[in-house]
Design a protein around this nucleic acid. Structure first.
Lengths: 133, 133
DNA sequence: ACTATTTAATTGCAAATACAATAACTATCC
DNA sequence: GGATAGTTATTGTATTTGCAATTAAATAGT
């Protein structure tokens, strides 16, 4: 059964190479585009929550978010109740670029599963969801 | 359908974190263990071939292999016909450690799919194989 | 045979990465 | 309400990473 884990790893690494190449021109290589997508879709996560949601080391995520704030893609807000928390939102540039990021993700995903029938796509989706949750 | 690509990425990142933590004590973090496994299973690949087989940047792969050669896990041999090629083989330490690496990969994979029925496991394996090839 | 193109390995270097440690704050327990 | 434990953000630092460029060798084309 280890073929499953190898195939999954292979797909991820190949996808990341393509996506990073695509978004380097926007300063969103090194998986930075993921942060913009996730933040757009779920605004107001605090830093550690965002890091966990993308399964990336918290210190790495922290520095990536810093860079994205400096670049104008994201912005941070202190939580009113809990002074430890800094919540993440998209800034103007992040808002503007989201459609393009999402379209590319969609396209990449469609290409990946293009040799499957619709039933197979649904089944794969269902099975993967079962692994994750 | 982009849930598929997200779930796949999430599984990979989580798996890599666990596996790197497990094998750090052996000096096989940063995905180095993958090279030992693949080389053991297909000895004599040249450097670029090995890099492609694990979907990792060739320069990164090159440096990782260098380190593994220094650590006694792998060894290199010049190709007799084509003077550009350096073929990779496991050395003593690589040979010795392979069973443990493979057992861990097996265990990780089994844990990952433990909530699936046997039929579902087979189906997932089949669908993923269809994506990769 | 000779030039041009391709492919492999390698190095240079700036940036990214992640473990470890610390500081600030919150929640819990007695 | 004060000590203790747990959580979050942050920094220090050494290592890793990967794009770009270089060298060397093989292959293709004429």
């Amino acid at each position: 059964m280890f073929a499953i884990i190898r195939d999954i790893g292979a797909i991820t690494r190949e996808t990341e190479i393509k996506t990073n190449a695509e978004f380097r021109r926007l300063g969103l290589a090194n998986n930075a585009f993921i942060y913009v997508i996730r933040t757009y879709e779920k605004p107001g996560m605090f830093l550690g929550e965002l890091a966990d949601s993308v399964q990336i080391d918290r210190t790495t995520a922290f520095r990536t978010v810093q860079k994205l704030v400096n670049n104008g893609y994201l912005r941070l807000e202190n939580d009113a109740k809990d002074k430890r928390l800094r919540r993440v939102f998209v800034a103007q540039k992040g808002e503007a670029v989201y459609p393009e990021l999402h379209a590319f993700e969609q396209h990449t995903s469609d290409t990946l599963v293009s040799r499957l029938t619709n039933d197979e796509k649904d089944e794969l989706k269902r099975l993967l969801a079962k692994l994750v949750y």
